Amino acid sequence: MFLSALEIRNIIESSFLPKRCQCTLSPDLSMTVKVYADGQTDHLDLLVTGIDASGLNGCREINELIAQLRSKQHYIEVEPHSMLGKAL
C-alpha cells in the first residue's frame, strides 16, 4: 500500500459525508466499513466486512471501492470477500 491506513480511512470516511462512516483496518489489511443512517442513531445503512485492502494502492482503486460501497448502501454484508475486481 502506498497510502497509510489513516489516509485510506480518512478518504473513505469523508466520501460518505454528511453520513457518519467508520472504517477500520486490521494489521492483516482486512477492512470493515460501516455507514450509519444518521448522526443520532446507530442504525446501519451499510456494513461490509472482510474487504481485502491490500490492493488499495492509489486513488483509482480507492475510488472504485467507494463506488462499490455507495452502490450497496442500505445493504448489510457480513461475509468476508474481496470487493476489488469482484461484484458484490
Rank of each mutant, 00 (worst) to 15 (best):
I51V: 12
I51Y: 00
Y75C: 14
Q40R: 11
I66Q: 00
R70K: 08
K19S: 09
H81K: 15
Q68W: 06
S82D: 15
R20Y: 10
L44N: 02
D28R: 09
E61H: 03
L29F: 11
I62N: 04
E79R: 06
L6P: 05
V33T: 01
A37Y: 15
I62W: 06
S14C: 00
E7G: 05
I11R: 08
I12T: 04
D42M: 07
G58R: 11
E79P: 00
Q40T: 14
E64T: 11
L29H: 07
L88K: 13
L69H: 09
A87V: 12
S4C: 15
M83E: 02
H43T: 12
L88M: 11
C59S: 09
L3T: 05
I8Y: 01
P27S: 13
Y36F: 14
R9A: 01
P18H: 08
A37I: 15
N10Q: 03
D52L: 11
N10K: 01
H81T: 14
S4R: 15
G39R: 08
A37M: 15
E13Y: 06
F16L: 09
M83F: 12
K19D: 13
Q40K: 10
E61Y: 01
V78Q: 13
M83Q: 02
K34F: 06
E7L: 03
D52M: 02
Q22I: 09
A37C: 10
T41H: 11
S30V: 11
K34C: 03
K86F: 12
L17Y: 02
I66K: 09
A5I: 04
V33M: 00
P18N: 04
G58P: 11
L25Y: 04
N63H: 01
M1A: 12
G50C: 14
S26V: 04
D42F: 05
D52G: 01
M1T: 10
Q40N: 13
L84N: 04
S4P: 13
D52Y: 05
I8Q: 00
L3C: 07
T49S: 13
V33E: 01
C21T: 07
S71H: 12
R9E: 03
R60Y: 05
S30Q: 10
E79L: 05
N57T: 12
G50W: 14
T49I: 15
E64A: 10
I11P: 00
A67H: 02
S4W: 15
T41E: 08
D28L: 03
V48Q: 03
A67G: 04
P18T: 13
N10F: 00
